[in-house]
Design a protein around this nucleic acid. Structure first.
Lengths: 340, 340
DNA sequence: TGAGTTCGTCGAACCGGTTCGACGGTTGTC
DNA sequence: GACAACCGTCGAACCGGTTCGACGAACTCA
């Protein structure tokens, strides 16, 4: 394998000169620089990543910690991963994907071994066990998802409170007075999926303020259970005219369930979900939804991380907690309730 | 950051002794070994990945080249990625995920920089541009997908020919004599997605042998186009009683389309797909299907790769081309055709 | 003409591991 | 009692980059 010594020899200069000629960190005569660059090109020189990382303490790799939990809907996760991966690539970073179920251990290994210059955490829990590890790590971290304690990390998330309010307001404005909100399974909440109750509490509060009824229920996050759950929910609440979904699996399953019951939206039931446009296309979902903007969140997280890594922001500068404002994408699944 | 010198000093031994005590590559007295291990634990020592890679020419990282092409159905891709990631983790390797659209360049950089000990390629094309790069790389490579020329790489794929035959045989045995096969879009084929015509040709041949009619058609691989395509296909072939799907997006969209047309399977139409059980659950697909086994293929690829990396197999040993036999998972979507 | 700058290049040290050869001490064998 | 074999440890070299200080040559200016 050709190394920088070979390039230097071919160009007739010292190793250090070759290094400077390629990096441009010191003035080098045009003549020598061209000779070095040409030699590098001819020999097909690619710097050894390990050696460079050792010398510079920088790897140009970003760690991405994502867990494929049985109660998270995998296709929804994928969108965040793609957002992070694409942005990292554009900024010149590779991504090291860890799906280790033992998040804290994986994070500690990745950071302590200096394999990564920074990390992005997905599936952030209210009391995330990875955060203490991350705070003591020398590298910066960015989260997609809001934890209880944001100190020492940059945080990006959808404004779930506002999302909950917006969903309720939208349906109430149309005249609905009996709503059902289908959330993630109860044990996603127990595990610390705070976004579930952030949206739910805000929705309940908004409903109370407008004087309408909103019943929060949980649904499974996998097939075929969620289908049964939806049937049970619709059986239990025949008076409901508006359905709110904060559960991707439920959204994916609902068209089939409604078909089985010969219901259609918005004729029989107005439906609003919370998922991305990409997700809606993938699953042919006809429901209006609050855009969850996974690509945008992934991009924001990586951008901020890279800014910190490259010291445009010092590590002790104040950290950022930024919320994306929810936007309702109208797919025509809501209308005034049918007179009964 | 604590390094092996700190550990050695704390244990009162030389750096080399500390290294041997931790790696076990030379005999070390129990007493010294324990002292070193304890010092390492107390100081929270984690080896520097770059330094180790530099010294050993091994990074314990596997490169995963996956392209999220607009005409590949992303959720289907994810299953392969998960299979590869999980197996790699179990075997002690991290995964570097590259989604760079310029595959050859990304591959060259990853291998030449010695960032990875080996690579797994997804989205393999008949005449894959990454293969020449991979063959000259010093690291081994494993493919999930069959290229035209398999020299120098290990290859794992579903037996698409057998899959095509099995789908046809199954329906013909039930009495169907008019079949339609929905494949991926034409330009997936043009780009080199050989699996499309491998299945298609085998299906056509099997149909000819059994004396039944099989019409091959292409469908889009994204929503909502594929929905329109399916309607058009069903309009154009009202006489068909059996539908074969080699297109995940089509499978995902078909329930809605059939609902819109008030068709049901197997009453009005017998349907057989080609996708994984996990995929079927995610999309609530009620159709019987040939299992595409992405987890198994990912696992096989990584296992073989690791075997080569760890020199249980020398690099010049003969390479492997292994096909997974298709299995039909019966979900009750096929039956003898209804008498017209 | 000599001192002070500036510019371009070089040599050496360093990053943090692994590994090879050497060496002193103990044990075993005849 | 001499010699060989073996065991456990050490020092030094090496992997392939980057970076710092030094240094010679050319240029500037008094």
């Amino acid at each position: 394998m050709v190394n920088i010594g070979d390039v230097a020899r071919a160009a007739g200069v010292a190793r250090s000169t070759a290094s400077y000629a390629l990096s441009g960190k010191r003035a080098i005569s045009d003549e020598v620089r061209l000779r070095v660059q040409q030699a590098a090109a001819e020999l097909g020189y690619t710097p050894n990543a390990g050696a460079r990382a050792l010398a510079t303490s920088r790897s140009n790799v970003i760690g991405l910690l994502a867990q494929f939990l049985p109660d998270e809907f995998a296709p929804a996760m994928l969108q965040y991963i793609q957002g992070v991966a694409n942005t990292a690539r554009d900024l010149g970073y590779d991504i090291l994907l860890s799906s280790d179920p033992d998040g804290p251990a994986a994070l500690k290994r990745l950071t302590d071994s200096r394999m990564v210059d920074g990390v992005v955490l997905l599936n952030v829990a209210e009391d995330d066990e990875r955060l203490p590890v991350l705070r003591t790590a020398p590298q910066p971290g960015a989260l997609v998802g809001l934890p209880g304690d944001c100190t020492g990390v940059d945080v990006f998330d959808l404004d779930f409170e506002e999302a909950g309010r917006a969903m309720v307001e939208h349906l109430v404005d149309l005249g609905h007075r009996d709503l059902v909100l289908v959330s993630q399974p109860a044990h996603v909440v127990e595990r610390g999926g705070a976004y579930v109750w952030r949206l739910q509490n805000a929705a309940i509060e908004a409903a109370a303020q407008r004087g309408v009824r909103l019943r929060p229920v949980h649904g499974s996050s996998s097939q075929p259970d969620i289908g049964r759950d939806l049937h049970a929910i619709l059986d239990a609440h025949p008076e409901a005219t508006g359905l709110l979904l904060n559960n991707e699996a439920a959204a994916a399953a609902l068209p089939t369930v409604m078909h089985d019951r010969s219901l259609s939206a918005p004729g029989d039931l107005s439906v609003v979900g919370r998922y991305s446009d990409e997700f809606a296309r993938t699953f042919s979902l006809p429901f209006s939804s609050i855009e969850s903007a996974p690509d945008r969140l992934g991009r924001m997280a990586v951008r901020q991380l890279v800014r910190r890594i490259e010291h445009q922001i010092p590590g002790d500068a104040p950290h950022v907690v930024r919320f994306v404002a929810p936007e309702l994408v109208d797919r025509g699944s809501t209308a005034p309730p049918r007179r009964r």
